[in-house]
Design a protein around this nucleic acid. Structure first.
Length: 418
RNA sequence: GGAGAGAUGGCUGAGCGGUUGAAAGCACCGGUCUUGAAAACCGGCAAAGGGGCAACUCUUUCCUGGGUUCGAAUCCCAGUCUCUCCGCCA
């Protein structure tokens, strides 16, 4: 959420920044509504002030006048409210402005690779896709999931199910013990305000699964733990001593994936439900970029430990998510596709989400300011499984267990079909 | 599911129709004292929005939404959430 004052005062600069994001914003309409809104407020306040003084005077002869004022005020109020609502709708659909050092571009073709790590091994046999391997092992069952639930779901069975759990535990252990994150087991349903706070609503409602409790009680399945973890700070003033706050949670995530029909239909890449370990940091706003570097390291560190080849990509202005100011994607090597696929996305949102959530902190001078919020996957479990099933694939179709996971897998070396 | 109690500033907590934007305490900030710190003492300290170059000023806000009244934190109605007791239950 942006400050209307800033837009009003620095329109040119602001609209230039927004333009970089490849979106069209009706600034004329916004300014017009803002003007109208303010003039209605002035009119209303004048009458309110008059009414107040009558009531203070306790002069009975003026009481009738005061009644009339009440009516006039309520008419003005209704009008003003509807205008400010419209204004807010427009404002809340404007994405965050990119930081000045973010590469400009329309789409992913302008993203910038900033780091490449791990070696891609030439295999002496043909690497099978993760779903072939999984189905051959009888440990991934897409058909069964289609029957019980529909498309884009999967049954993970046996040792692969254990691997999924192992990954979750391994990642949480690293983030809590080595990276200073606090483990949280959060609710998986979020209300409207919470979804608004991180920017999923109102603009991206069609991506969300909604649980209808009754007509005025809407809940949503979280699309990522970012939503619920970041909102821990909602409508709060945090003591500066508590910053930075760093949280990690491993949760299922639910996404409709509307608009991605025909994309990644095969396998586990794009599911309606998947596990993800999520990192969230709450920091002083000026420390956002520093924290983003740190967070990206924490996330990519997992891939280092798993010895999986990856690269880090800095997203360009046109490819970033709605709330982000700057984003690094971490992409893991997927041998069967012979390309890198996103396994983590780390973003700083600056004060954009904090404004929507009214999340503040008090600095050492006793001034209240909006906090900075960051989120990143550390990592997506399903996609990490894919990476392991392919990069650690043996020629007989078994899967070698990465060393760091062995303690979490009863010290077995391999997942085989028997 | 049944019966009660409650929701007030960063926190605790008073107020229960008319300078109450709200006592008090804690926290926090500034100062005095001190070699430094602590303690003590003095002072400051809600938010959002509008107008003004500014000093400043106006409006709104005591969970949310309605209502009563010239006037509501205070009274009435509805809702949300929290707590206690009983029942049920993973």
């Amino acid at each position: 959420m942006h400050d209307i004052k800033e837009i009003r005062e620095n329109l040119k600069e602001f609209s230039n920044q927004i333009k970089k994001r490849n979106v069209d914003v009706k600034f004329d309409e916004i300014l017009e509504l803002d003007k109208e809104n303010r003039s209605l407020i002035q009119e209303k306040e004048k009458l309110e002030s008059e009414k107040k003084s009558i009531s203070k005077s306790k002069d009975k002869s003026l009481f009738n006048k005061s009644k009339e004022l009440t009516d006039k005020i309520s008419t003005l109020q209704t009008k003003q409210l509807s205008i400010s609502q419209k204004l807010n709708e427009l404002l809340s659909s404007i994405p965050n402005t990119p930081l000045s050092n973010v590469p400009e571009g329309k789409d992913e073709s302008s993203n910038k690779e900033v780091e490449k790590k791990g070696s891609i091994k030439e295999s002496e046999f043909k690497i099978k896709s993760h779903y072939e391997v999984g189905e051959n092992l009888n440990m991934l069952d897409f058909d069964l999931a289609a029957k019980t639930s529909g498309s884009r779901f999967v049954f993970v069975k046996n040792k692969l199910a254990k691997l999924e759990r192992a990954l979750s535990n391994f990642m949480i252990d690293v983030h809590t013990k080595e990276n200073g994150y606090e483990e949280i087991s959060p609710p998986l349903l979020a209300n409207f305000d919470t979804m608004f706070g991180t920017g999923q609503l109102p603009k991206f409602e069609s991506d969300q699964f909604e649980i209808k409790i009754d007509d005025n009680n809407r809940k949503f399945l979280i699309p990522t733990a970012e939503v619920i973890l970041t909102n821990m700070a909602r409508e709060k003033t945090i003591d500066i001593k508590e910053l930075p706050s760093r949280y990690v949670a491993s949760t299922p995530c639910f996404r409709k994936e509307a608009g991605s029909y025909g994309k990644d239909t095969k396998g586990m890449i794009r599911q309606h439900q998947f596990y993800k370990v999520e990192l969230v940091s709450l920091v002083e706003p000026q420390k956002c970029e520093e924290e983003l570097e740190r967070m990206t390291k924490c996330a990519s560190g997992i891939l280092d430990k798993l010895k999986l080849p990856y690269r880090i990509v800095e997203l360009c202005t046109g490819d970033m998510g709605f709330s982000a100011q700057k984003t690094y994607d971490i992409e893991v090597w997927v041998p069967s596709e012979k390309k890198y696929r996103e396994i983590s996305s780390c973003s700083t949102c600056g004060t954009f989400q904090a404004r929507r959530m009214k999340a503040k902190y008090k600095n050492s001078k006793n001034e209240k300011n909006f906090i900075g919020t960051l989120n990143g996957s550390g990592l997506a479990i399903g996609r990490t499984m894919i990476a392991i099933m392919e990069n650690y694939q043996d020629k007989d179709g078994s899967i070698i267990i990465p060393d760091v996971l062995k303690p979490y897998m009863d010290n077995i070396d391999k997942i085989t079909s028997n």
